[in-house]
Amino acid sequence: MKAAILPVTPLQQNCSLIWCTATNKAALIDPGGDLAKVRSGVAKAGVEVEKILLTHGHIDHCGEAGLLAKELGVPIEGPHEADRFWISRLDEDGARYGIRGAVFEPDRWLVEGDTVTVGDLTLDVLHCPGHTPGHVVFVHRPSRFAIVGDVLFQGSIGRTDFPLGDHAALIDAITTKLWPLGDDITFIPGHGPVSTFGQERRTNPFVGDHALA
């Protein structure tokens, strides 16, 4: 597996391009906007996008995902259906944030225990609610790698003051679903720099071991 980060929208959301080196098949994760930049990143990598994966339904993560899926002729997988609330209001949220938003219906809603494939790669799906009720995380165990959206950041965690946010559920998802995967997991968050679960357990002021002791 290889991965590239393409920051998009005024919120500098980390759209991720991941691909299977054996097949050159790729997936775009959370292509929320700035589609010209996304297309350029795909062309630079020289890969073939076969699907779009979504961690959750917020405008900066999926506002233009439906438009891109139609353009490329590829399916959308994710998030969990509990985020239908957010996807149904992309038009109005787009106007509020100055980001183009278009309502769409994913080809496949995801649930805990599902897997998604990218070429020969298989990623596990974890349902990690709290930031949004339908947030999912993608984990590629063989390469010790995860794409966590807005669940966890370097030094912080996802906001829970939006509608349907749940702080306790978010903390529970991080500590019971992410930490057991191992300290050596490297993750791409929805915003900001890459980190590892081990670093966050040591230093994160919200979900680090000392903070929760």
Rank of each mutant, 00 (worst) to 15 (best):
V151T: 15
V47F: 08
A69K: 02
G46D: 00
G165L: 03
G198C: 09
P180C: 03
R89L: 10
I171M: 09
G33P: 08
V111P: 08
D34V: 02
T132C: 01
R39E: 13
D120V: 02
T160W: 13
G155R: 04
T115Y: 05
C62D: 10
R39D: 13
L72R: 08
P10E: 12
H131K: 09
V137I: 11
L126C: 11
D114H: 04
V137P: 01
W19E: 01
G33M: 04
M1V: 02
A95L: 12
P142T: 09
V47E: 02
T9P: 04
P193T: 05
A173F: 05
A26D: 07
G149C: 00
P10D: 11
A65F: 04
E64G: 07
P129T: 11
Q199I: 01
D183F: 00
R39F: 11
A45N: 12
V139S: 08
D34F: 05
V207S: 04
P142Y: 03
N204D: 13
Q12S: 12
G33S: 11
V137Q: 08
G101F: 07
A4N: 00
P133D: 03
L6P: 10
D34I: 06
C20I: 00
G41P: 00
I147R: 01
W19Q: 04
G134E: 03
P205R: 02
D150Q: 05
A45G: 13
V139I: 11
V49T: 06
L17M: 00
Q154Y: 14
D60S: 12
D166N: 07
E71M: 11
W19V: 09
V137M: 07
L11Q: 02
L17R: 08
G101L: 06
P7A: 08
E48Y: 07
P163I: 03
I52W: 06
D30G: 00
D172Y: 11
A27Q: 03
A26F: 12
F206M: 14
L90D: 04
A213H: 09
P180E: 02
G182R: 00
V74N: 09
G32C: 08
T176G: 01
A82F: 10
A3N: 13
F138V: 04
P189H: 12
A95N: 07
G78P: 08
V125H: 09
H167L: 14
I18N: 09
I87S: 03
D114M: 06
M1T: 05
W109Y: 15
L53F: 06
G33K: 00
R159A: 14
T203D: 12
A146G: 11
L152Y: 07
I29E: 05
D120N: 10
E112W: 04
R159N: 14
P142D: 02
A82R: 02
T160P: 00
T122R: 15
I18G: 01
V116G: 01
A4S: 12
D107A: 12
K51E: 03
T175L: 13
D30K: 02
V139D: 00
P106K: 05
T196P: 10
T132M: 09
A146D: 10
H210C: 10
S88G: 04
W109R: 02
A169H: 05
P189D: 11
G130P: 08
G158M: 03
H140D: 10
P189R: 10
